[in-house]
Amino acid sequence: MKTWLRIFFVGGAISFRALFSWIRPSIYIPTLLIGPTTQIVFFAYLGRTAHLKSDSWFVVGNAVQSASLAALFGMGFAIDGERWTQTLSAVLATPANRAALFLGRALPVLVNAAITASTGFLGGALLLGFRMPWSSVPALALLLVLASFACTGLGMLIGAVGLRLRDVPILANLTMAVLLIFCGVNVPLDKLPHWMRLAAEGLPVTHAVAASRLVAGGASLASVRTPLLVEMALGSAYLFVGFALLRWFEAQGRRHGTLDRA
């Protein structure tokens, strides 16, 4: 158990630091902290032009969605980056417990995603005058963690696919775009075609965004229990499927000798 925890926490932290060699203030701040705010401002102004919704509506939607930026790319690179640095075979040759190995990598990504999303709210407050009751902050923080968890689960799936495909960044970019269109981030769900609304039900972010908007408007956490539980269930499902795929692709890669070749 001690070894499991050591691999989970220490291994995850070192992997995060090592693989994200670009995490230094001059890179981290523009990419992950300022980026979400600029996205929020852009869509808020577009919303004003389209006469669609208030600035607050766009602040909440885009801030929550920005968790996917850190989560999808983070998890994707946490696995694909090993191939870049040619350490994938070495990592997978270890007898370390795979759950500790991969879930340990997911934890810092999840935390980072929640931080990224929270800066969006800060940017919205500074630049667009976004305000919400202070009493809503804890509930909103929980929802951000939950959205980050669900996105990290999806990121695990992308990372797994990255064992078979070469272009993880492209896959992550496309997935982010799907979340941006489908999940009611910038277009109300009831204005989307029926098939898109159906697809949105099965995607991370959708339920977290809906719940966050209610909470930011003053609703209690108890009143958004259903979307909260759905988001948690979706995140768990993606994480489980992602992890299962990782194990399967790892076995396939070992059998065919294709771990380092995508």
Binding site: L46, G47, A50, L52, N186, V187, K191
Partner: peptide
């Protein structure tokens, strides 16, 4: 696509 839907919805 997002812009089309936003303009149409608005």
């Amino acid at each position: 696509t997002i812009a089309y839907y936003m303009f149409k919805s608005g």
